[in-house]
Design a protein around this nucleic acid. Structure first.
Length: 225
DNA sequence: ATTACGATCATCT
DNA sequence: GATGATCGTAATC
């Protein structure tokens, strides 16, 4: 039996090694639906620093959002919603705050959150998460760096397509009291946010719609000024 | 019914 | 920087 060549969509790690809690920590509040009922270019940078939480086998797995991309809907040639509703993208045309999960390149899964009220099909793609703590209990940085890697590590598959991310079910988005550990001045200003073109698309290349926290080592791809 | 391609990743040069 | 893996989707015939 020859060794497996190339990449596979199997889980990176045999066991989850992210920070785990059996109960949703009380300092976490799911983001309300109104948070997502705004233009994608406003919501995307606001998601940086928030948490993505995945309930899996009785535990909550979590990562800090450090890189996202905005897709604008019908007016955006790079968006799945560009040509209008199809069986695949119908979640995008529904209410805001729901998971849009799809398979790309035959083997990778991408996770988005639907943005704007029903009828407007904007969304935000999650490109990288950072583990909440270093050490033996945390996953390697690379495990959630990249849209395909983060879904693999968090066991997010297409069965979660359409999931309401504003409720603490199997998958949700939440804010915590971060960045409470920073000095007061930094807390007011927030972390530095950088903007760039989106990655891996051929249409609407020039649009600055990728937002990331340059301070995070988990960011994928280039970090232009 | 058939086909072309993609919001990626790992491995190679 | 280039390439191959791999398959669901949507457009075309």
């Amino acid at each position: 039996m020859s060794p497996r060549r190339g990449i596979s969509a199997e889980p990176l790690l045999a066991a989850p090694v992210l920070i785990m809690h059996r109960l949703l920590p009380s300092n976490l509040a799911p983001l309300p639906r109104v948070f997502f009922e705004r233009p994608p270019l406003e919501v995307a940078p606001d998601l940086l620093g928030k948490l993505l939480l995945r309930r899996w086998r009785g535990a909550w797995l979590a990562g800090r959002i450090v890189e996202v991309e905005a897709y604008l809907g019908r007016e955006d040639p790079a968006a799945h919603a560009w040509r209008g509703p199809t069986p695949r993208n119908r979640v995008l045309f529904g209410p805001a705050g729901h998971a849009y999960v799809y398979l790309i390149y035959g083997l990778h899964t991408c996770l988005n959150v639907s943005i704007q009220p029903a009828g407007n099909a904007g969304c935000v793609l999650f490109r990288a998460l950072e583990p909440l703590a270093a050490g033996a209990a945390a996953s390697p940085l690379r495990a959630m760096s990249g849209p395909g890697r983060l879904t693999r590590t968090l066991h997010i598959g297409r069965a979660l397509n359409g999931c309401d991310l504003t409720r603490p079910g199997r998958l949700c988005l939440a804010a915590d009291d971060w960045p409470c550990g920073l000095p007061a001045r930094a807390r007011r200003a927030g972390p530095e946010i950088r903007v760039s073109r989106r990655i891996g698309i051929t249409r609407a290349r020039a649009l600055p719609a990728r937002f990331f926290l340059p301070a995070s080592p988990a960011v994928s791809g280039p970090r232009p000024l």
